[in-house]
Amino acid sequence: MTRQSEIIKQLSDAELNKQLIFSQVVLLVIGGFLSIFLFDELTLWFKIFEWDLPDILYYGVCSGLLIVVADLLLIKIFPKRYYDDDGINARIFGNRKVTETFALTLLVAFSEEILFRGVIQTTFGYLIASVLFALIHFRYLGKPVLFISVLAVSFYLGYIFLLTENLLVTITSHFIVDFMLGIVIRYQKWGVENES
């Protein structure tokens, strides 16, 4: 079986970008499709999108920054091999413009939060949504530190959704985490092997 990192290395930048966007659009379509069938009234589903600026700032922005700081501390504490994802994130973010990173991470946050918090958590519960969210990041299954990290973030985002019942809060937090870590990868070349 070919490893995901080997498949990604064979893709051109344009092909990789298409695959990333395609996978997120698929999650978004699944979330939209399931919401039609799992919610008696779509108006109830749309109520979880509330523009509550204090909650968005406190729970969304502050939580996102807290997760980023915790992740960066863990990266400093653990040897590099524990956070090595076979260069996949470096390939995704290493040469991407800031505006492209912004757009991609916004799409990821929006599509994943709609499906996992907006549909799965509201229908099947906190535990199932949090575990499924972690499992969709299957490339981390053989990497205990990375998997535990994504599982902890998943439970944390799910808990924030339990507290606020506002999907805009978790989308904000998720976006901040992905965007800021993408920028760190881009400008510090974290996870990128130096070629001499």
Rank of each mutant, 00 (worst) to 15 (best):
M1G: 09
S5E: 06
E6L: 14
I7G: 09
I7Y: 06
K9G: 00
K9A: 07
S12W: 00
A14H: 09
E15Y: 13
Q19T: 03
I21S: 14
F22M: 05
S23E: 12
S23D: 14
L28Y: 11
L34T: 00
S35M: 15
S35G: 11
F37W: 05
F39N: 13
F46S: 00
K47T: 01
F49T: 03
W51V: 08
D52V: 03
D52C: 03
L53E: 15
D55F: 15
L57R: 01
Y59S: 04
Y59V: 03
S63M: 03
G64A: 01
V69T: 06
V69L: 12
A70F: 04
L73M: 10
L74Q: 00
L74A: 06
D84W: 07
D84I: 04
R91I: 15
K97L: 13
F102T: 10
L106C: 09
V108L: 02
F110M: 05
F110I: 08
S111P: 01
S111R: 04
E112S: 15
L115F: 11
F116E: 01
G118E: 02
G118S: 00
G118K: 06
T123V: 15
T123N: 12
A129L: 05
F133I: 00
A134Q: 00
I136E: 08
I136R: 11
R139M: 05
G142A: 10
V145W: 00
F147R: 15
F147H: 13
S154H: 03
Y159R: 01
Y159I: 01
I160T: 10
H174C: 09
F175E: 03
I176F: 06
I176Y: 08
I176R: 14
V177N: 04
F179C: 04
F179S: 01
V184W: 07
V184Q: 08
R186F: 11
R186L: 11
Y187N: 00
